[in-house]
């Protein structure tokens, strides 16, 4: 039973934690209860006079307590910009939890290596924390790293950070860290979420070292539940739905 619901939720917290990056906490009892790491929620955001944003917008749930869910989002367009206007007590229509939980594809364990680029951290942080595995986390610059205790708190010694400009952690791309680690550690599975370019590199490197690579994909969506076929990603034959067949895929299931 795919247990998702349309729920009128209440905003608890919506604060800017880094420039242009917000932490949103909402009370959404049903969704919180059903959520499993890797799943997302499709939000109906406040619209302007022209009705935009018209479609829902998908966001990973990075954590859930008994009654609350947490989201971190980056302002990139009209929808996320309007979302910043919501304050405590406002209502927000949520559809979720959606998508395949990470553990249905791979049981996260101490032999799982997680790789996050930018906002990709939101999809995999919870699994990384529970798993006992290691997280490689990269961003362009320090101010784009989300180091909220709720997000990466449990990871202290199990996390390696890189920034492209060297303002925090190792200088360079997060994927630059991969070969050295894979050469010496026997991580059997890799779970990665981030920009397409990064995912391609993870796939390449992971396959070179013969590890199972799982990629968490972002694609534009409409329904989020699998009916409209908007969120197509190329597969060896035809297309798969990111919202319903994913967002996590074994790298071989899709063509990047």
């Amino acid at each position: 039973m795919a247990g998702y619901v349309e729920e009128e939720a209440r905003v608890l917290v919506n604060i800017e934690i880094n420039p242009g990056i917000y932490h949103l906490k909402i009370e959404a009892k049903e969704i919180a209860k059903k959520w499993q790491p890797g799943q997302f929620v499709n939000l109906l955001l406040p619209a302007g006079m022209d009705g935009i944003p018209f479609l829902r917008r998908p966001f990973s749930i990075f954590m859930a307590s008994k009654t609350e869910i947490g989201i971190v989002y980056r302002v990139v367009g009209r929808g996320t910009d309007n979302l910043t206007q919501l304050v405590k007590g406002d209502s927000l229509n949520c559809l979720g939890p959606l998508g395949v939980p990470i553990k249905r594809k791979i049981e996260p364990s101490a032999t799982t290596l997680f790789v996050a680029g930018g906002m990709g951290i939101a999809s995999i942080a919870a699994s990384a924390i529970y798993s006992g595995g290691m997280l490689l986390y990269g961003a362009r610059t320090e101010s784009e790293l989300i180091l909220l205790p709720e997000v990466t708190g449990g990871l202290a010694e199990r996390m390696l950070i890189s920034t492209e400009d060297g303002s925090f952690g190792t200088k360079g791309l997060v994927t630059d860290l991969l070969p050295a680690i894979l050469a010496v550690e026997d991580y059997t599975g890799i779970v990665a979420c981030g920009p397409r370019g990064m995912l391609k590199r993870v796939k390449e490197i992971g396959e070179r070292y013969n590890r199972s690579v799982y990629l968490v994909i972002e694609e534009r969506m409409a329904c989020g539940i699998g009916t409209c076929l908007a969120c197509a990603i190329k597969a060896p034959e035809g297309y798969l739905r990111v919202c319903k067949d994913g967002p996590i895929f074994l790298a071989q299931e899709i063509v990047l």
Binding site: F54, R220, L229, C231, A232, G238
Partner: peptide
């Protein structure tokens, strides 16, 4: 027969509406 459908991007938002080219997948 099965139809594959169109390559993404398949949907776009417009003022009070949306465009789709799912391609009858």
């Amino acid at each position: 027969e099965p139809w594959v459908g169109n390559p993404p991007i398949r949907v776009a938002e417009t003022a009070s509406g949306m465009l789709n080219s799912i391609g009858l997948q």
